[in-house]
Write a protein that binds this DNA or RNA. Structure first.
Lengths: 196, 196
DNA sequence: AAAGGTAAGTGAGTTTTACTTACTAAAAAG
DNA sequence: CTTTTTAGTAAGTAAAACTCACTTACCTTT
């Protein structure tokens, strides 16, 4: 998955950025910081990456690769579509909780640059998101999910809930209770909040 | 609301940024661009604003002021808590649809700078969000909303759904069907997606 | 083993951009 | 009429992203 055939300098640069992002936000990390941390010169960064953001996206892509691999595994046991959706919610929240750097990148840093949306990282996410839509559509065919609902809207509610449930904890470095957030989201979205 | 007693230079600067953000993202707008568009010198920006982001937050604050004023009005007719929540969803989506610059700032630009969270703009949002929680809690007391659910989680699902429902349309400049998105979100979140 | 080619890496620039500061002109205040 | 405050300018600085001409080292082929 992670291409170990990268030259050592390139590996060092990727690792350096990942390390730096652990306690600092992307915009405050300078190329000079990255080079120093990696033990290479600034020029080398531009040998391997088109620019600073391109480097970010490649770091992100590696994480997403691993994330999607794990999601796939987590889905194996699930039979019903609702179980699958719940497993995705759990995996996502878990991943945000465990890999805060990855979470910050995906939920915060990435959006405000149009070129993200043509990056490999974004294309991987698109695949994942298409997959979720497939599960929802299967759920509708199975009569697990109301056929009156718009599948895309369902997906957006779920993904939005996951993001919103994690983002403030990510930003303010607070604990994320994965199981509780998962239960809360699924309780609400699966059964609704209305009493009657 | 908008303090017309601002000196003309300051007004011009605020207006210039708002104009520039209509087709460009904040990070790609330079202080030199802002100054040129406003017809003042760069130095003047720093007379009135601590830095470039501070300017952004003040522009944002003006929009939020107006937004919250409108939300308040939209809530007047609603009797039940669920109606109120639906009105908030509608107002929010409407506002994102109509004021795309505001939407971009709030959904995209703002997060990735820690100092936003101590800005006036953010404090206004906090008030609004606290208000939503109040409505949910009233709904639980009224037995409109299930008392087994976590009110904060409900709010997060709703807000997340709104964001997610709008953000891709904002980014890719696609049409936002306010009524449809509102219906979709409320259908799902109020009654759940599960068939049984 | 010598030559040539290529990949990895360097380091000294350049340019751009956010921000500073010392100044001026004019209006308000005393 | 003088002083002070306010609105605004112009030139400059520092830091950051990015460039480019160059070196070193290794691999391949004759």
């Amino acid at each position: 998955m992670i291409d170990e055939k990268y030259p050592p300098g390139k590996r060092k640069i990727i690792k350096a950025l990942r390390t730096l992002l652990e306690d600092r936000e992307f915009n405050s990390v300078t190329t000079s910081d990255i080079a120093k941390t990696a033990g290479v010169t600034e020029g080398l960064i531009y040998k391997y990456f088109a620019n600073k953001r391109d480097l970010l996206y490649q770091v992100l892509k590696e994480h997403i690769d691993q994330f999607l691999f794990k999601v796939e595994k987590d889905l194996e046991g699930s039979l019903s579509s609702l179980d699958k959706l719940k497993a995705i919610v759990h995996s996502s929240v878990y991943s945000y909780a465990k890999h805060r750097v990855f979470a910050k990148m995906l939920l915060i840093e990435v959006r405000n640059s149009p070129d993200y949306f043509s990056s490999d990282a974004c294309n991987l996410i698109r695949l994942h998101v298409k997959n979720i839509l497939g599960i929802i559509e299967t759920g509708i065919k199975n009569c697990e999910i109301k056929e009156t609902l718009n599948p895309i809207a369902i997906r957006e509610v779920l993904l939005g809930a996951i993001e919103q449930g994690c983002i403030s904890k990510i930003i303010f470095n607070r604990k994320i209770d994965v199981d509780k957030i998962t239960e809360d989201i699924c309780d609400i979205v699966f059964n609704g909040l209305s009493q009657n």
